[in-house]
Design a protein around this nucleic acid. Sequence first.
RNA 1: GCUCCCAUCGUCUAGAGGCCUAGGACGUCGCCCUCUCACGGCGCAAACCGGGGUUCGAAUCCCCGUGGGAGCACCA
Length: 468
Amino acid sequence: MSGSVVTRFAPSPTGYLHIGGARTALFSWLAAKKAGGKFLLRIEDTDRERSTQAAVDAIFEGLDWLGLKSDFEPEYQTKRFGRYREVIDEMLADGRAYRCYCSKQELDAMRAAQLARKEKPRYDGRWRPEPGKTLPPPPEGVTPVVRFRNPADGKVAFDDLIRGHVEYDNRELDDLIIQRSDGTPTYNFCVVVDDRDMGITHVVRGDDHVNNTPRQINILHALGQTPPVYAHVPMILGPDGVKLSKRHGAVGVIEYRAMGFMPEALLNYLVRLGWSHGDEEIFTRDRMIELFDVSQVQKSPARFDMKKAEWVNHQYLKVADPAVVAPEFDWHLRRIGLDPANGPALEAVIEAQRERCKTLVEMAEKSRFLYAELTGYDPKDAVKHLTAEGKQVLDDLRARLAALPAWEAPALHAAVHGYAEGCGLGLGKVAQPLRVAVAGAAVSPPIDVTLALLGRERTLARIAAAVN
RNA sequence: GCUCCCAUCGUCUAGAGGCCUAGGACGUCGCCCUCUCACGGCGCAAACCGGGGUUCGAAUCCCCGUGGGAGCACCA
């Protein structure tokens, strides 16, 4: 690939940004970045029935969160209807396309009859002009559709970066509709015109489009254009091996944000689905760009494995710059009704919690005691640790801690350990009651870190409350 | 029904004829570490869909079968 590479991601705004679509977008984006080229976002909204502004917004939100930015002003097909009309008129003028007056009912009947005969359903070309053929007179009051005059024989072939050489017989293809009776153009046609007009050199898209490719190439040829390079990436399956859908739970990219994923981690997991580089598992964005190669992408579909996705997220959380995680953590704290201002600095909490949290949802939950007053103790933990001896320990500890000149982890550590040793108690006998008193449950970061984060006042108050 | 595609541990994958007694990772299980939960360390179990070829030799090449997927719209 040369420096003039331009790839695109062309979703239709009929719903949220699907996780599979996100991976396709990532691959497309990577292919461009890898070549030092550019990436374009194009909204394919020619289906006015199903396209919605909410879906457009959702696509932007998802892509934005993932950091997959379009290098150009996003394109909208609905803004290009004039252009499509222009090309169709040219094709109509010299016979590369023609009008067809078949009604939908007529076409349905045709299809049904063919299926009954166990044939592949296809338009029979009844309105296709042929030398020496007399066409029926156009019926009254019927607005025709426009069909592309596909080559009747020969073959169409292309070399897919992922699938290799693919060849189709033109006889398998029929004359597809490129303009509906309401005058709007259809997908296969718009894609071709757009990819050409926008200088797309590499088409990286889902492999549900493989079968459309020969048709598009034929149109491209009719337009006197050389086809771009194609790379059809397989889709993502649910854990059960069936096409990923809402039935499996989260499918929208934004839902992954809500589940506590960091965008880079999600990207990392996604890139490993169908692609690998030796034994490496963790790839930063730059590393991906450096190593990625579309032609190495697996041909077969991959299943989404939440466990591994969470592992990747955890790996990322453990080494990320807390300052980068903080805004996202902030978002999650607010989401569960906590005020980030009513507690320790986010960065410090992130550093204390990151090793025990696979997701930011977990981190937010486990940090609740730092941002809100305790509403009670975990029943089991209270019974086990807030015993008479436990309370005695707490009482002793409160006095010792209150006397500490500096409220910092090392000093707190020394105080707690010193007390335990002095009483000949195991640390567990001391740290656990303290943990329950202060965090509400028997789980928290190391006790000294926990106390340091909580602060002197809250710690002392909670210990006192626990003793009573 | 027709056309096209795919096929290595439960999952993601390495593997491009001998380096494979098939490697790594997630997950699972066991052990160690330990103030809780984790992190970390160590270890076990776990796969070449089936059948034919080709070859001295096949996970790797070919054919058939099986299983899975996509498309065949006035959807994209």
